[in-house]
């Protein structure tokens, strides 16, 4: 395994509820790379992220992060990874500040208010909403707070589960720009998505997952982007078969 691989799936096989969910999945994500995992509903995308966080144990194979086996090093790896869950699971009874502060304090990396404010600006959370409890937020606004939290962790690895779901087109563009900028500064990003075109905009590499198996990998040419139409066709083909 090479030193600059931040994430590495080695013949990963995972069962959930007694049924196989991932089967012999192998891939690697290098430092500063943006990797997108594409696949249909129930393909095993979220499961892959949870396995890298040590929240699910592989049956066979290994999930490696920062050169370490995730199993047995969960705490160390979670400290270096920010996770954006699939469902925005922040607290409805807290406002944006309180939510973000709480999770940052649990991570033992509290941030001053102006940094929070800056992160909210970056994700485009309206200033007048920040003092309101999340129970009054729209889906996209909640997603923005969750993204802000992931950014504020300032960790070298981001594991994002459908980060753009619920975001309007402008917010998606802003988000993509944000991720690209982060990667340029050395962050490694692995994101799960259904959004073929979004994936092509940010990811240098896209893995296609189908019913627990990695059926293809698409790489962007140097100085170019992955051809979204080609990817879309591949996705549709894999679904049809």
């Amino acid at each position: 395994m090479s030193q600059q691989q931040v994430l590495e799936a080695q013949s990963l096989t995972v069962q959930r509820g007694g049924r196989p969910v991932l089967h012999d999945v192998s891939f690697a994500v290098g430092e500063g790379e943006v990797f997108a995992l594409l696949g249909g509903n129930g393909a095993g995308k979220s499961t892959t992220l949870l396995t890298f966080l040590g929240l699910i144990e592989p049956h066979q194979g290994r999930a490696m992060a920062f050169g370490q086996d995730v199993q047995g090093n969960e705490d160390a790896i979670r400290r270096k990874a920010a996770y954006l869950p699939e469902t925005a699971s922040l607290y409805a009874h807290l406002n944006a500040w309180e939510n973000v502060s709480y999770f940052l304090e649990l991570a033992r990396s509290p941030r001053p208010r102006d940094e929070l404010s800056q992160a909210f600006d970056e994700v485009g959370l309206p200033a007048d909403a920040r003092d309101r409890r999340l129970e009054s937020y729209s889906k996209g606004m909640r997603q923005k707070v969750a993204i802000a939290l992931a950014l504020l962790r300032s960790v070298p690895l981001l594991l994002l589960d459908e980060p753009t779901s619920g975001l309007d087109p402008v917010a998606i563009d802003e988000f993509n720009a944000l991720i690209t900028a982060l990667a340029e500064r050395g962050s490694t990003v692995m994101m799960v998505t259904h959004d073929v075109y979004g994936a092509c905009q940010v990811a240098r590499r896209v893995g296609l997952l189908r019913r627990g198996e990695l059926v293809g990998t698409f790489e962007a040419p140097p100085e170019g982007m992955i051809d979204a139409d080609e990817l879309h066709r591949a996705f549709a083909r894999s679904h049809a078969s």
Partner: peptide, 14 residues
């Protein structure tokens, strides 16, 4: 129930 346990565990919080 609300899924915040995953966020807490990933925080990380044992």
């Amino acid at each position: 129930e609300r899924g915040s346990d995953l966020l807490l565990l990933a925080a990380p919080m044992s």
